[in-house]
Nucleic acid binder design. Structure first.
Lengths: 292, 292
DNA sequence: TGAGTATGAAAATAATTTTCTTTATTATTG
DNA sequence: CAATAATAAAGAAAATTATTTTCATACTCA
């Protein structure tokens, strides 16, 4: 099932009465929705157009038309060739033979990257790139699996001379967030968007006046709502406990895009630093003569 | 290419001046069009909105919004098609507009996962899984970018109760390697396969009697030669300095396969631990009551 | 020159979003 | 256990924005 529909299904319990009616209508035949106006849909569901717009915003779309376009893209995906092609996430369970695992993992990771790419909002992405390029200082937050993603970004950013930190320790995150100021950027990564430590850190960063960016799985989440600019990776159907593998790949994919975007934007500034950092590692290593 | 775009290309000669401008703009970056209003697009092309509406009707769409939704659906299709699908790595260079970067990054990462999967040696993979499952202790080595991969594996392994370490510090790696013994496994990650610190650590581990596994880019390298079982991820043509992004994704892909393979092999042992570790995080978090 | 076509300006319409008000729900206090 | 405050949900209607249509003008080709 496509990430958007999956997110709907997932969020259903959290929704209010009218919103649920709407969600159910959308899930019932998503293909139709795409060709409907907001008024028709409202009437069919017996709700007001206002509720639909609000609903779309809760899900972090720009509005109803934006929702339609993204949904259309996803639906097209899901009925692509099921061979490796479609976006059908494979469940990986016990006792499977290795060839099956390999196949399923490949399908999941490919689908995850595709879905994430098609859901990307280029405008937001560009805004984040601009923010990061201009930032005085960048804080990266993430716990557990997400700290891997944060660390990855950290390594990239320091190589181009961006002043940034990526503490895995939640106390240090808060400490660091407290000392942020206007012109700084706080970037929070979380699979669920509900990790308390990460939410705390981002809240604190916002209070300090920093611009806030979140990177979470698709759907409504505390972290995404909190952030000035929310970014999303595709989410998998399966339970959270094992579902974060593809998500992490997708998040790294977004990190790569952000980083490349930054380098591309400020080519003159960044490339020499990137080269220099590479050369320095070589140089000092050589000087040492290989002795460890 | 998608039917709509193909039709545009095909009809181009027949179109009038302004219509051609429009068609060309659409063909230039169809992905953007989908997120634009008719007014913005008109302005960008230096034509009037009326022309766009008329143009859409000529192509037998109901109007501009209808065109957008249909185009979005088609673009999603074409992304999934094998057309981009081959193994063509795109070079990502300076000054590229964001849509291009996104497209190229997706192509690279998809190709990287596909290539890596097709290069996998299932026999070796199974050997490594068996080794890891039986290991008394596991050491993970990796510097810089590769330490991210090592850390990721570390997080997974401790969740299923495997006794392992993943120091980023090269001295600690050596120290740890020295204390390995027969029945232990040393797992070294490196993009180039020539990272001196990692080579040292793996050499030391081998000397201590541990089984050694390497994970490097495809090709002959010191590290791969050194290891009892070498594993490979696909390599990119382009220079090392920026070529490690796709490689890291591919390496994580292999880590995911290894981990899932382990869990699948020893389902009874590992799954309860995995569940427990998840529940414990939830539990202690809850107990604390959200206060940081 | 005139018939036909292409185009844009502006008016008309339609769609969407926002604001504001009402209603329902939940929590709080006497 | 009311009664009431506080909060959230939902719709009506206004405002805004987007799209389409109409109409006037300019251009092209016979």
């Amino acid at each position: 099932m496509s990430p958007i529909l999956h997110a709907l299904e997932h969020d259903k319990p959290k929704l209010s009465q009218m919103e649920r009616k709407l969600a159910e209508r959308i899930l019932a035949s998503p293909g139709e929705i795409v060709h409907m106006g907001i008024t028709d849909l409202a009437e069919e569901c017996g709700i007001s157009p206002a509720t639909i717009t609000r609903f779309c915003k809760v899900l972090h779309f720009k509005g109803f038309p934006d929702f339609k376009v993204k949904l259309a893209a996803e639906l097209a995906h899901s009925d692509a060739s099921p061979q490796d092609g479609g976006s059908s996430y494979q469940d990986i369970v016990a006792g499977n033979p290795l060839p099956f695992i390999v196949e399923a993992m490949q399908a999941n990771h490919l689908a995850s990257i595709r879905d994430t790419t098609s859901l990307l909002d280029l405008g937001r992405l560009q805004s984040v790139i601009d923010l990061l390029c201009r930032a005085r200082r960048v804080d990266l937050y993430g716990m557990a699996t997400s700290s891997i993603v944060a660390q990855d970004f950290y390594q990239k950013l320091i190589r181009i001379g961006v002043n940034c930190t990526a503490f895995a320790d939640s106390h240090m995150q808060i400490t660091s967030a407290s000392s942020l100021a206007a012109g700084d950027v706080a970037f929070a990564v979380s699979y669920s968007g509900e990790t308390p430590e990460t939410i705390d850190a981002l809240t604190c960063a916002a209070a300090s006046g920093a611009a806030t960016v979140s990177l979470t799985s698709y759907g409504s989440s505390t972290l995404a709502t909190l952030a000035d600019i929310p970014l999303f990776s595709s989410s998998l159907e399966q339970g959270m406990r094992r579902g974060d593998m593809a998500s992490r790949i997708a998040q790294l994919h977004i990190i790569d895009i952000l980083f490349t975007g930054m380098v591309s934007t400020r080519f003159g500034d960044f490339i020499p630093k990137l080269e220099q950092s590479y050369l320095n590692v070589q140089h000092y290593r050589h000087k040492r003569g290989g002795q460890s």
